[in-house]
């Protein structure tokens, strides 16, 4: 790959059951590029968790993915309520998801920890009342 490949996905906040379509499509794209399956798996799960977070908390958002020779970079951006205490949100088991989300199997407080677990670098920029941007990087080598 001589130049970076970019992908843009809109994450629909209205239809919870369609969440994940962007991640699955993203996974398929990567497979076609010949990237190591374990790296694809990590990147896809991290992206899916981010996508689910945007659906649960922020009525959706946008995901931008860039792949170059060295890394997969994912930027998730929403205009939701923001995260007041990022350190707390990063704790496994801490969740502010409503009960109807839990009945779907989400809201276990593992989303952000999983995103960190599966990526090499992760930053969260959040302003209450304005929105949240999460950037993640997965090294290819």
């Amino acid at each position: 790959m001589s130049e970076a490949l970019t992908f843009h996905f809109d994450v629909n906040g209205e239809d919870f059951t369609s969440a994940g379509q962007a991640s699955v499509r993203f996974k398929k794209n990567k497979r076609e590029l010949g990237v190591d399956p374990e790296i694809i798996r990590r990147a896809s799960i991290a992206m899916y968790e981010g996508e689910i977070n945007m659906v649960i908390h922020a009525h959706g958002g946008v995901a931008d993915v860039e792949v170059d020779e060295d890394a997969i970079k994912i930027v998730l951006k929403d205009q939701g309520p923001g995260i007041p205490d990022i350190a707390k949100a990063m704790q496994e088991g801490y969740s502010t998801a409503p009960d109807n989300i839990r009945s779907l199997g989400f809201g276990a407080g593992m989303g952000l920890p999983n995103m960190k677990r599966y990526t090499d670098e992760m930053q969260i920029y959040s302003t209450v009342g304005v929105g949240t941007t999460v950037t993640m990087k997965i090294n290819l080598n």
């Binding site: 059951t17 969440a19 699955v24 798996r41 896809s44 779907l104 199997g105």
Partner: peptide, 15 residues
């Protein structure tokens, strides 16, 4: 025992 649509995406992503 989970049976909603999201299990398919999860199964696919986890492989």
């Amino acid at each position: 025992i989970m049976s909603n649509q999201n299990i398919i995406a999860v199964a696919s992503l986890v492989d």
